[in-house]
Design a protein around this nucleic acid. Sequence first.
DNA 1: GGCAACTTGATTGTGCACAACTGAGTTGAT
DNA 2: ATCAACTCAGTTGTGCACAATCAAGTTGCC
Lengths: 141, 141
Amino acid sequence: MLLENQLCFDVHAASRALDGVYRKELRELDLTYPQYLAMMVLWERQPVTVKELGVALRLDSGTLSPLLKRLEAAGLVRRERSAADERSVLVRLTPEGAGLRRRALEVPARIFEATGLDPAEAIELQGTLRRLTAALDEASR
Amino acid sequence: MLLENQLCFDVHAASRALDGVYRKELRELDLTYPQYLAMMVLWERQPVTVKELGVALRLDSGTLSPLLKRLEAAGLVRRERSAADERSVLVRLTPEGAGLRRRALEVPARIFEATGLDPAEAIELQGTLRRLTAALDEASR
DNA sequence: GGCAACTTGATTGTGCACAACTGAGTTGAT
DNA sequence: ATCAACTCAGTTGTGCACAATCAAGTTGCC
């Protein structure tokens, strides 16, 4: 009983601690952690609809719309209605947004170092968390 | 490189998925998950200063002050300046706040069931997360 | 062809989280 | 005894997150 409270608390705490490290690492790139996640998707494939971003990041439009507007205001991203389907908005990188990738490449290694985990542990943790998330998603439906 | 991004992402996703389950379970108690965490501390010991709550929950006053005001507005909690140290604010339960404990007692079991983890896994996950959080806290300082 | 059901993104409202700062109160060093 | 350094809670500003709702656009069914 106490056990799982603590577990839930620890997940929460770990998430916020991670946020803190990213906040520090990303300060010079002028990105927040969620913005960085969105940029990572875009660095991999482009253009992407808001819907697709939401699926990839597990975020809804209420979170993504203002986030993308901030990225657009920062000159990293452009948004435009799809010609094929006027309901969709296509998000693509500007040259500045694409260029930011090079500076962002060093971040992952520094974050991983900060976790203090060895690779095997990290992989196991990742597996456990994915199963956890899948089970929780199932339960909250 | 991709590995740890995914790991960080998974921690984040698990945290939000957990939030979703709590949101559902706590709806009938009219508590959010952070409010529930604060109440759990108070159900264990009382009175508690805002500072002590912050240490226990890893939250600062910018988060706790409005949260406690909402709990006070809901009639679950009273806040008053400590006579011994006028800088401190003591938080204590009202009879209604104390009474809510009985209804909250069932929540943990339902949450644990929703995680789909067996106890051994949960304990191991908890240990890994605590080491992770400690390492990250160290790194962001 | 026309209408109902659905999809998509945006908006509004509420709440969490942290940084930076403020102001009142306390403590310690001299 | 006093004053500088510190502690504590609160406020302000920014951003994330979700629920609920809306409007515009698309699709399928008849």
